[in-house]
Design a protein around this nucleic acid. Structure first.
Lengths: 222, 222, 222, 222
DNA sequence: AATGAATGAGATTTCATTCAT
DNA sequence: TATGAATGAAATCTCATTCAT
């Protein structure tokens, strides 16, 4: 788990911002250096080449995803609550750093290099597996319906999650992602909950100190 | 609804292929012309500039989407069946022309120009609205559950649809999209169908001549 | 004295206009053909190449200058009146076809080819010699002061004439060239007239039928 | 009043030379870089684009014109002498740097861009106004005849000045501009001097150390 | 007489990267 | 750690011109 210097982090963040705002085609060494107020060759003090910057972005995100997943899995909650955590963590993270959404949901950007696309695949699988694991647990618990295979449910949940983020981005971040995410979550619960054990929907969830602070933690320590 | 010359269509197709295979960064006039076996300036006889080629790709897809949607809406079927048609039409379309999937599910590619991203938005809204309309109809019919707002269901269905196409692409088209799409559809039906009026799932749907030929038609006549 | 076909004349005129309005750099085969509403290769039916179009412009103007000069010289008037005719003919010509001014007073445009710059030189010398001849006649007549050599007077008159046309062009043809030209002429007469034989300034000159019709003729038959 | 780096000055000078020798059409980045012995992209370290190079040429000339005019106006001399200074300064400047004449008397070259043609207009007006001011002063002093409006005299003088420079250029710099300029000046004095106060023509003017050194100064410190 | 399609040459500009300082 | 200057490669696009029809 590589760590980055301050300058490297600056470069990573500026790059994410540039991709988010102007697209991958505008992610040039010139633009990065201009954004940072340093010269172009200076970038090469911190990264060997441009590809390494892109890899660093991915590695950075992968690490923080891993950490978030680990924490969610280790929390002692019902499966549904844990899935909810994943959901909300996602939205909170992107709401706080919209550029990240733009970049991370744009795997195509990285497709022209094998190392890059491998990394992207790994990242995608990471959260899908985490989701799958939680769903399986929920199905074991009778929290979640069993008539639909766990991979399908995972696909459906992740798909909705991704699409709402994408819409948010296409709308120029013009709606409240966390609020809409909350609504979406309510609907998804209805869809996936086991018929037998209907639980009352807990509107208070987001306010509960522990979950809230948990999510906060994830965002501050990606 | 602009029509394109033969050469223009060739350029459009080659461009889609290039984007799909090598990413937008490799969509250069040189590569396009090389693929067609003509000189670079020759391209400019057919499109004023590169942006126009990208716009043509989008316009082309938009037109065929519109036509497909129109036909689906005008068919006299239950809402669920119509949604199924949309689903399967989508998959069939992409299965027949994988490159299109690569391009069309990569809206980020087009983000660096206002005209492009406007077109992308329009296209996305097109199928979402079509889906919404059908769901509303189904809810009116008691075919589809009413406890979840129609926009949410639409979001969830479209999200799943998009994600499976994206996975297919990331897997290098290594699974059978139509087959997996069929499975996904089965799961989705279970999720959205109205509890009261459970219909038996019709595995035979895809084989029925009329639907099949309908979809075929859409693909051959975009 | 080559004559031109109708199409050739059209091409010449359009070319003059293009140079006048947008500069020599915008005089491209594409722009010429677009202005005429024909295809690019069509131009090559009428002129072998681009250089020939430029030569035709010059040849055209040279011919009409020669004719005008010849007529002025053959008119039976005082030298001062003949010079006045040259002056006014010039202004009238340009006032009716401003583009011509833009082109003809821009000899630099043609400098990158020997044949072109030779033609330009010839044209310039043409009117200067004509002017010189008239001045010499005037000095012989005692109409024009003799204390300044005839080449100097010619230079001064032609210089003023050119500068006012250039100013007119730079001002975007926003003043009345003929009127300002008339004023300039009054001043020049005062400067060059022989001290002894002061003639009254004839404001009526431009109205006199013969001069007027003479100038008209020159413009219509360049 | 922007100052230029050494490389920028080199580029400016090389560009002037290229325009003078081969015409604006040969002023290409390739030719500039070849002349300087550097690569084409290297030019872009020093100027953002080609237009900026042209603007720099004009700006450079404008600045030096302003300085020259300021100095001439501030000298304590008769109006006629000051006009003479303007005349001779002009000729000396161009005689020392013939390429500049080629470029500066070819405003057409710059007509295809608004910023360029605006600058050209400004420069033209600059010296015309300076000339007008001096003539008005001379008319107030009874040095210069009053029967011709000051704008007309200014036009006539500037026109002659410009035309002789242009002829010099068209002749391939084959005569002695300063000498011919001197002759022209003698003629012009005769034309404009007030009848009452005939001053002896001062052939010695150009030799007088102060004027000479003044002009020298202007040329070396533009 | 005209055109659609094409092309070699070349224009301006951008890019990632290097090197000397 | 940083920079000014530079560069090879390549991108987009324009130009005058040709050729088959």
């Amino acid at each position: 788990m590589t760590t980055f210097t301050e300058r490297q982090k600056e470069i990573i963040n500026v790059s994410i911002k540039l991709i988010a705002e102007k697209g991958i085609q505008q992610l040039t060494i010139k633009n990065i250096s201009k954004s940072l107020g340093i010269s172009e060759p200076a970038i090469y003090r911190h990264f060997e080449n441009k590809l390494d910057i892109l890899l660093a972005i991915l590695s950075n995100f992968k690490n923080s995803s891993k950490a978030a997943i680990k924490r969610i899995h280790s929390v002692d909650r019902s499966a549904i609550e844990q899935i909810e955590m994943m959901f909300l963590t996602h939205f909170k993270r992107f709401a706080e750093k919209p550029a990240l959404a733009a970049v991370l949901f744009s795997e195509e950007i990285f497709q022209n290099d094998k190392r890059l696309s491998a990394q992207v695949s790994t990242i995608m699988k990471l959260s899908q597996q985490a989701m799958s694991t939680l769903i399986k647990k929920g199905q074991g618990n009778n929290e979640i319906r069993k008539d639909i295979p766990e991979e399908q449910l995972s696909l459906i949940i992740m798909g909705a999650l991704r699409l709402i983020v994408k819409k948010w981005k296409l709308s120029n971040f013009s709606f409240d992602l966390e609020k809409e995410g909350g609504k979406l979550w309510k609907s998804i619960i209805k869809l996936i909950e086991s018929a037998k054990k209907k639980r009352p929907f807990r509107t208070d969830l987001m306010d509960r100190t522990d979950l809230h602070s948990f999510i906060q933690y994830e965002i501050k320590n990606p």
